[in-house]
Simulated scan of single mutants.
Amino acid sequence: MNYERLEIPDLVLCEPKIHEDNRGFVFEAFKKESFNNFLGFEVNFCQDNISYSKYGVIRGLHTNTLNYAQSKLVSVLQGRILDVAVDFRVGSPNFGKFICVELDSMENKQLFIPRGFLHGFSVLSQDAIVNIKIDRYFASSESIGVRFDDKDLAINWNLRNKDIILGEGDKNLKSFKELKSPFTYKDNLY
């Protein structure tokens, strides 16, 4: 597995070494020891969540409150998405900045998003199956989020407005300026 720090260095793109032959392919999707060695701290994933979504779906931008914050390792089992992570740590030199990465089931790259970030994705293929490994169990009452169309963030989700499909909860999220971040850059989130 090759690991690459992105423009916001806490975000890591993981690229597997794919071994192909006439039967198909195989690759290591996750190896705890090399992953944690690269990060320099330990992440203990405890749950995998899988979602199926149709073209045009946007899920996010979500995070949890401080005591329920989650690290995420996002991969695509089928299709193609635009994965988005927004630095939500007050005092961070990258606060309010975001990274967009296309992930698909052909290259099988993954995006690691540590605690303290908002996360969302849009589906760019006919449909997509997304796997998200998390390191803390989900607590629905602790979920918070920012509107996908926040004017200050101005994220291009690579979809036409008429094609966008939102869940009811995502329609009522706050703006980036309205939502007080529970995280600071100096928090020890691990």
Rank of each mutant, 00 (worst) to 15 (best):
Y3D: 05
Y3T: 05
I8E: 01
P9F: 08
P9I: 05
V12L: 04
L13E: 10
P16M: 02
F38Y: 15
G40E: 05
C46H: 08
Q47W: 06
K54P: 05
Y55F: 15
N64Y: 13
T65M: 12
N67D: 12
K72D: 05
K72H: 05
L73G: 06
V74I: 15
S75Q: 14
V76P: 09
L77P: 09
I81S: 08
L82D: 03
A85N: 04
C100T: 15
M106L: 14
N108Q: 13
F112A: 01
P114T: 00
P114V: 02
R115C: 00
F117A: 01
F121M: 00
S122M: 04
V123K: 03
L124I: 07
S125G: 04
D127V: 09
A128Y: 13
V130W: 00
N131Q: 15
K133M: 10
D135E: 01
R136V: 08
S143A: 13
S143I: 12
I144C: 10
R147K: 13
F148R: 07
D150A: 04
D150L: 05
I155L: 03
N156E: 12
N156Y: 03
N161F: 07
N161C: 06
E168H: 11
G169T: 13
D170S: 07
N172I: 12
K177T: 13
S181R: 10
P182I: 10
Y185E: 11
K186I: 10
D187C: 07
N188A: 10
Y190W: 15
